[in-house]
């Protein structure tokens, strides 16, 4: 860390997201502006100089008048996260790591890996792992009029309310693992602002050609489904466990494999009409 501290840092920021204090510094003003585009959702500038995790971003590239290319470098505290010529890779490393760190360290929130939309003042949660099709389903629900809350984490508080985590959607092209960032506004949607109670939890996974045959899960089975996607369950079970129970006890759970996302939207919305 001392070696890093000796470098010249042109710009920096201390910010707070979900109760976690994080810092970002960069070797040029331009590098700082680039990295700041990838700050986690809900990051608010903070007056505290002391942070729990400090990201140091060194913009490389070609120096003027030289054929030498320098690596883009990213560090979290003293640990090197990226050393690459690919700027996008370095910036996404910052995005991934900062979001993940906050999800695990947030003191008063429990982060469940899930897509979330709002519908008439209540939330629909879609827990699931990467590549389960959460983001696609969220995007389709938004196109159907739902309010965007998250395509990555359901952020739950002690009362079981879901808070917005409105990062850009990471939509993957068909047949590709590569995702592109899309603002929700570019999809014609709006983003949620206030916390919502949970109305419905949909436990589903995309399987080509699968038929949507939803069956009800009990609250206990639902709680296990949420737990299976909870970031901090191993590190802070005493904080996470009651919150999951709270969320599970207030909403019905549906479980089914699904085919194309647009084929299940009507069923989900119809279910919402019943539980509203």
């Amino acid at each position: 860390m001392k070696k890093l501290d000796r470098l010249v840092w042109a710009a920096g920021l201390s910010f707070n997201a979900y109760g976690v204090r994080v810092g970002l510094r960069a070797n040029t003003e331009g590098a700082f502006r680039l990295a700041a585009e990838y700050l986690p959702p809900d990051a608010k500038p903070s007056a505290y100089a002391e942070v729990e995790r400090l990201y140091s971003f060194v913009l490389g590239g070609e120096a003027r008048g030289s054929k030498l290319r320098r690596y883009h470098m990213l560090y979290a505290n003293e640990v090197q996260l990226a050393r690459t010529f690919d700027l996008e890779h370095a910036l996404r490393s910052f995005e991934d790591d900062s979001q993940f760190y906050i999800a695990e360290a947030a003191p008063r929130r429990v982060f469940v890996h899930a897509g979330v939309v709002g519908w008439r003042g209540r939330a629909v949660l879609i827990p699931g792992r990467s590549f389960s099709g959460k983001t696609t389903l969220v995007a389709e629900l938004v196109k159907a009029g739902a309010v965007y809350y998250s395509d990555e984490y359901a952020v739950l508080d002690a009362k079981g309310l879901v808070h917005p985590y409105t990062r850009p959607l990471g939509l993957r092209e068909e047949g590709s693992t590569k995702s592109e960032r899309h603002s929700i506004e570019s999809l014609g949607g709006t983003r949620g602002r206030r916390p919502l109670p949970v109305a419905l939890v949909v436990v589903t996974e995309f399987k080509a050609g699968a038929r949507w045959r939803p069956r009800r899960m009990t609250a206990g089975q639902g709680a296990l489904a949420l737990l299976n996607n909870t970031v901090s369950i191993k590190s802070r079970p005493a904080a996470a466990f009651p919150v999951l129970k709270q969320a599970a006890s207030q909403a019905p759970f549906l479980k089914s494999a699904r085919g194309e996302a647009r084929e299940v939207i009507d069923s989900i919305l119809s279910e919402l009409e019943h539980v509203s």
């Binding site: 996404r92 979001q99 993940f100 990467s130």
Partner: peptide
Amino acid sequence: ATAVASCVKP
């Protein structure tokens, strides 16, 4: 914890 995070970078 790492099993329940999306990784989006190339």
